[in-house]
Design a protein around this nucleic acid. Structure first.
Length: 790
DNA sequence: GAGTTTGAAACT
DNA sequence: CAGTTTCAAACTC
């Protein structure tokens, strides 16, 4: 290869220049560099990084997804971090690498990073640009968000919708932005993150409002940036101005961190133990190491990270790592941190002293009681949602944060499918785009008005904190949680599990079955259904789904209204809606909540094997009976639902397969489940906000369409979980294949349990589908599913 | 709040 | 696939 060219070139050059040899050499050198560089570099960089990462991340396992997200975070770190380890260049490199390829590995292994880094560097311009872009993003995002939010008048969710499509995706991240609190991390590993958070807190104290929202923004920006090059581009386009409160904030944080990082870390732990754990998992393997073994198992995906951190096993190491490396993980941390910070703030707020500081920042934020009010403020619309949602939602939001991070990875997964609309939106990004907007708006709003944001944050934080606290409490004492939940009016709406032996990793657990993480209200013991154990949760879900693909599908499909419309045969079933599997009641006569059909507010159907069915919503025999009569509420709701259902059905039907409304953003679909109104619904009826959360993207969409309320309607128990989100995660993937397009409806109505549900659901199903599962988001599957499926 | 009942989920 | 066990919610007191 070289010889011919070289010779030729050399000859030509020689002709021109004095010494042929010299010229020859020169010519060679220049030529070669160019070719070789491009080739090799491109190779390295491109082949190396991007291709592998791309393929792997999505296709690979869900685990990767999580990793992926995390990794993405890593990139963020560099810019902010002043740390020596990662020079700005490195940071840039990392970022670029991520952008180009997948950040996963880069982040995972320092070596990998270096390798990737090199390639990236070789790429040069691109990488550089990216880095610059990243900075822009951080800055720009806020603006974008602002834009979205810009119209305070518009509802938060709708606003999001306004955001550009690209923004929409980003928006998803915003939802994520909402702090997701994770289970309390007891161990010190968290310190690192804590340190970051501490910084935030400290800054907040000093700066007041700015810190939190800025951090959020920065995170959001980071997430966005990393999410996908395309996203970044879109953002770029969107964002014009380079202002970055976030960046500034970061810098400040960094400085703080560097100085106070350690101390802060300690503080952080004290302040909010919860969030850290998750972050650690995602970000810091070291933390994982410190933590439970389970995490490791779960974190298989995070191994990469571990590799990086392997060196850092001890706390001291971790600290050092944090200090030095924080930049890498920092992005991730930020996400969590932001949330955490908020939570921490809340906690602090809880403490009068701390409150004062926060209060100083923003009066609104100051008063926890006023939180809602504050949130209500025009500027905060997005945030408001959260408040409206309630603790659960908040929790979801929190989770969503994580999800966000994941979301970046997966996008669709978005989180956490959280109950939060925003979260759903994220997920939806894949399925539904509109929803995303909301989250964005929220995020944007936060960004937009620091003070307001602060308030929102405070709310979120409060929620988050509550969530965190709850988790903590959980560890401490389940009963306490119960009390809280009970005390909290929400308890009904967002009931949570009380699992003792299942670790919340079986369908016994309502939360798990609903595809949502356990949160505060839960009184579960040894709960693994938390963001921290995301990997485990996902793995378990997969297993269960492998056994029964419909395991996470909505149990009840509402149809009553739907039926006539669709004209499904399924209508045969007396009840308006049907239970996908059908009950097997023997003693309750289908007149108690023991009966899933009854609980779901639907009549028994052919699928049911119940004995002595007296289901008021519709007996198995076919007599619909008074079924619907009883549930008057249902009727009303049903009517509303109908509208939604129809709309949803169309859109959702496709998703039916997903059935799990919960999982994805589709969640909205889940909402559909709720569509069914439970007789009890009255009780169950969650506050709209809550419901919304459950609904997810579609739901959001529906809300937009309908005006929102839809959400309220359904809520089956599953939906109770504000988080709803996830259910679908895996299922979707699995289903993804199956369902939507194909067969949703087809399913045999009769099928007893498994199969038909969709079908049934199909008819009614649309609702089921609707949900598009948020969960997916979190888990890997979502991501892949997105890419692959869609 | 403790104990019982119930039926789904999980297991064999 | 059927039977049994496990589990947690629903229910009762």
């Amino acid at each position: 290869m070289d010889t011919p060219e070289k010779t030729q070139i050399g000859n030509s050059l020689s002709k021109f220049e004095d010494s042929p040899v010299f010229n020859y050499i020169n010519s060679l050198s220049p030529i070669k560099p160019v070719k070789s560089i491009h080739i090799t570099q491109s190779f390295n960089s491109i082949t190396f990084a991007s291709p592998p990462s791309v393929f792997t991340s999505p296709h690979v396992s869900s685990h990767k997804e999580s990793r992926f997200l995390r990794r993405h975070n890593c990139p963020d770190l560099p810019p902010d971090l002043p740390k020596p380890d990662f020079s700005s260049d490195n940071g840039k490199k990392i970022c670029t690498s991520e952008v180009v390829v997948d950040a996963d590995r880069l982040c995972d292994n320092s070596d990998d990073l270096r390798k990737n880094f090199k390639p990236v560097v070789s790429i040069g311009g691109a990488s550089v640009e990216l880095s610059s872009e990243n900075s822009r993003f951080s800055i720009e995002l806020p603006r974008i968000l602002k834009y979205d939010c810009g119209s305070p008048n518009s509802n938060p969710t709708p606003r999001c919708g306004t955001a550009t499509d690209s923004a929409s995706e980003l928006a998803g991240s915003p939802a994520l932005l909402v702090p997701h609190v994770q289970g309390p991390s007891e161990k010190g590993s968290l310190e690192c993150e804590a340190g970051v958070e501490n910084m935030c807190q400290t800054e907040q104290r000093n700066e007041g409002t700015g810190c939190e929202w800025e951090s959020l923004i920065s995170e959001a920006a980071d997430l966005l940036i990393f999410n996908s090059p395309g996203d970044t581009d879109a953002f770029k386009g969107l964002m014009g101005s380079p202002m970055d409160p976030g960046t500034i904030f970061h810098t400040s944080l960094v400085s703080h961190y560097s100085q106070d990082g350690i101390n802060n870390a300690h503080k952080m732990q004290l302040v909010d133990p919860v969030g850290l754990s998750e972050q650690q998992e995602a970000e810091d393997p070291s933390s994982l190491i410190g933590e439970t073994i389970d995490l490791k198992d779960i974190n298989q995906g995070s191994h990469d990270n571990e590799n990086l951190d392997q060196s850092m096993t001890s706390d001291t190491d971790v600290k050092a790592y944090n200090q030095n490396v924080p930049s890498l993980h920092r992005g991730m941390r930020r996400r969590c941190l932001d949330f955490e910070t908020i939570a921490a703030h809340w906690k602090k707020l809880g403490d009068s002293s701390k409150r004062s500081s926060l209060l100083s920042v923003s009066d609104e934020m100051i008063n926890p009681k006023d939180r809602h009010l504050v949130s209500a403020k025009p500027g905060n619309d997005s945030w408001r949602i959260l408040p409206g949602i309630g603790l659960h939602l908040n929790a979801l939001a929190i989770t969503s944060k994580e999800n966000n991070s994941t979301k970046h990875e997966i996008l669709p997964s978005g989180s956490q499918q959280l109950s939060l609309p925003g979260s759903t939106a994220y997920n939806n990004s894949t399925t539904i785009q509109q929803p995303v907007d909301e989250p964005l708006t929220s995020a944007s709003t936060e960004r937009d008005a620091p003070s307001e944001n602060v308030a929102q944050l405070t709310e979120d934080a409060s929620v988050a904190t509550s969530y965190l606290v709850s988790e903590e409490f959980n560890h401490i004492s389940p009963r306490k949680k119960r009390r809280r939940t009970e005390q909290a009016g929400e308890s009904d709406a967002c009931k949570r599990c009380n699992c003792k032996k299942s670790k919340c990793l079986k369908l016994y657990c309502e939360c798990f079955a609903a595809g949502v993480y356990c949160i505060e209200p839960c009184s579960c013991q040894e709960c693994f259904n938390k963001p921290i154990h995301e990997d485990t949760v996902l793995a378990t879900r997969k297993q269960i789904e492998s056994r029964n693909p419909l395991a996470f599908a909505p149990k009840v499909i509402r149809s009553s209204e739907y039926i006539p419309e669709i004209g499904d045969d399924s209508n045969k079933t007396p009840a308006s809606a049907r239970h996908k599997r059908g009950c097997n009641c023997k003693k309750s006569n289908c007149l108690k909540k023991y009966c899933e059909c009854y609980q779901g507010g639907v009549g028994c159907s052919i699928n049911c094997r119940c004995e002595g069915c007296k289901n008021t919503f519709g007996q198995k025999d076919g007599s619909a009976l008074g079924a619907e009569t009883e549930p008057e509420e249902e009727d009303t709701e049903a009517a509303e639902k109908k509208g939604l259902d129809k709309t949803l059905q169309v859109a959702e039907i496709e998703n039916d397969e997903q059935q799990n409304p919960s999982a994805l953003p589709t969640t909205p679909i889940q909402l559909s489940r709720p569509l069914l109104q439970l007789p009890f619904s009255s009780k169950n009826k969650l506050p709209p906000s809550i419901i919304v959360g459950g609904s997810t993207s579609q739901f959001v969409a529906s809300t937009k369409r309908y005006g929102k309320p839809n959400i309220l309607r359904y809520q089956p128990k599953v939906e109770k979980h504000c988080q709803t989100i996830q259910e679908d995660e895996i299922p979707e993937i699995l289903r993804g294949n199956c369902s939507p397009s194909t067969g949703i409806k087809t399913a045999s109505p009769n099928k007893k349990r498994v199969t038909p549900p969709y079908c049934d659901m199909g008819s009614s199903s649309s609702p089921g589908l609707r949900s598009g599962r948020k969960l997916i988001l979190q888990s890997i599957p979502s991501f892949p599913s997105l890419t692959t499926q869609q």
